[in-house]
Nucleic acid binder design. Structure first.
Lengths: 336, 336
DNA sequence: TCAAAAGTGTTATCCTTACACCCATGT
DNA sequence: ACATGGGTGTAAGGATAACACTTTTGA
């Protein structure tokens, strides 16, 4: 744990023109009844919250193993499913870090784990990821911050030079949608980048980006993260929301036995939208993604539910099977 | 150009425990009547063919800009569409490079360009990507190397310890398919990795991997590439084959005006499978991906064809529109 | 006239979506 | 009894995939 902090504090280790510091960061996701959870570290009250991260060391055999080693050391968790997300290295982000230490490349990973029980580290905690992206949770209704976001973006559109007006409008429509359109839950990163560019997110000002909006206009209802970790988290959410549709990854987040509704709630938590119950069950059933355990549970309230388990065989039968979100439940929102 | 070679030749520049050399490599794709082309460099007769690559330099503002700068310097091409593929850094690949210089991270990019005309560099040439992956071209019939590949893999399965037998069989079935199954054109990387692990590809022996097959068994009908560039190319092909289905990227490879059949041939070249003509046209038409220019051409042989252009508006209307391969043309192969 | 490519019509099938409704349990 | 969640039936609509067939050119 100490190694992480020290090697960041002494960037002078890095010498030579081509030297690049490589940081590994992990979006570690689990599902709980409260929603989609992400593991966040805060070593002490002064430092900002951050994803678990650490430098790539020469003794790491592979990048992924380096990541697993860091996460195990920092948080005590042994990762299961892991996939690489993206390598971030724009010099215009991380402005301060770059001035100190040259370029920092950060390789983001997505990891899924079954249980969100706390481990030995006192510094790691699970938070709903909507704490960092409150505008991404459309499960019950339009999120409360949406009107103010829309208003700010409208201002940014209105103040555009004549020729740029239309492209800004289109960008708003594509990412945040128009009142009549379906919310596209996959565009988490695109929405974050729009907010960043406009300056509605405090880290844009921290990084010294030139923004349209003043620092005071930033959305303070959403927590920020160290360096570009909120961007990395957005990338992870986007990837996961996309992937559940064509690969059976949700089950990496489920306990060994679960009911249809638990599965549905997990998918809804990840996607941030509500689904149509009868069609959801049939879809999952029909795809051969689950099988009955024979057991039932009556802890769910109402009629007892059958307990299911994931059919691991599907991974070799049809690895491209996923869950497919379209069947939306009717929602009573302010829009439309 | 010289900078690239020199900084690789003098890895001693890199000092310090954390120092990591970062290499940018590009899979640059274009489409020609002869098939899908990739740009490959061969500085001199002795050195192996390689994708265009160069180190990430401190003065590059972003990783992508660094890549564009290198490609422009090495090949004279100005890249259009560019996307990051993956960051490769396993220490077990690149064995020799690592011994000399510590870890080499290589960030792979995919770039698409319209015309495959030669540029100023004498060292860069366009090659059909099937020169490196002959088993990936199923357009006319089962590729000629397939029987021998199947035979080798069967041997590897047969010699497996009892408990591993089944998982090897499943892996073979998933990647290369069984006689009765549809060929899954997206699994380019998975197939390459299987061949690498078994040792059917010469670079596995070069890298010092411990392989089942002897060096002599390697498939010599397919050309190898510098370092892990064949793996990077496989990643690029996989990504592109997947992406044409849900995003209108093919048009990045098309000239301003084209006929339905030209478009179909390009998609077929990329996907390595043949498509059903009438259904393909309707699909493309129906999705609103193209519009008529009003002009026709009679250079195609047979009845003159209407010339189409890409409807750029679709990018903002429905950015998730793609081409969708399923409609296969009946093929007369050796396999069912 | 024939080959080659362009282009149209039609149908069976499957999947998605929406709507309506019944079932079993705890309080 | 009624609220809560579990669970089934079905029919409309759209997209896909397969088949058969016509049109227009150049050699």
């Amino acid at each position: 744990m100490s190694r992480s902090e020290s090697s960041r504090a002494q960037p002078s280790q890095l010498v030579g023109q081509d030297a690049v510091a490589v940081e590994l960061s992990a979006v570690i996701v689990s599902a709980s009844p409260d929603g989609p959870m992400v593991l966040v570290r805060q070593p002490d009250a002064q430092s900002p919250a951050a994803l678990p991260f650490g430098p790539l060391e020469p003794f790491h055999r592979t990048i992924e193993e380096g990541l697993r080693a860091w996460v195990e050391e920092l948080t005590g968790y042994d990762l299961g499913y892991v996939e690489q997300l993206y390598t971030f290295g724009d010099a215009n982000r991380h402005a301060s870090a770059r001035a100190r230490a040259g370029r920092v490349l950060s390789i983001g990973y997505l990891a899924l784990i079954h249980e969100a029980r706390p481990r030995r580290s006192q510094n790691s905690n699970w938070h709903s990821w909507y704490r960092f992206f409150p505008w991404e949770d459309w499960r019950n209704a339009e999120p409360a911050i949406m009107p103010s976001i829309r208003e700010s973006i409208d201002g940014w559109i209105a103040e555009a030079p004549r020729d740029e007006r239309k492209s800004r409008e289109e960008r708003m429509r594509l990412t945040f949608g128009l009142p009549d359109e379906r919310w596209n839950e996959e565009l988490v990163l695109e929405r974050y980048e729009l907010l960043y560019e406009i300056g509605l997110v405090p880290e844009a000002h921290r990084d010294g980006a030139s923004c349209w909006a003043p620092r005071e206009a930033a959305i303070m209802a959403a927590d920020s993260l160290h360096a570009d970790h909120r961007r990395i988290l957005a990338t992870g959410i986007s990837r996961l929301r996309g992937k559940i549709k064509y690969r059976p990854v949700v089950f990496e987040l489920m306990p060994p036995r679960f009911t249809f509704l638990q599965l549905q709630r997990t998918v809804e938590a990840l996607a941030g939208v509500e689904l149509h119950k009868p069609n959801f069950r049939r879809l999952v059933e029909h795809q051969g993604l689950v099988e009955e355990t024979g057991a039932v549970t009556s802890k769910t309230g109402g009629r007892p539910a059958r307990l299911l388990r994931f059919r691991r065989e599907i991974l070799v039968e049809r690895p491209a099977s996923g869950i497919g979100l379209p069947p939306l439940r009717q929602r009573s929102t302010s829009r439309r």
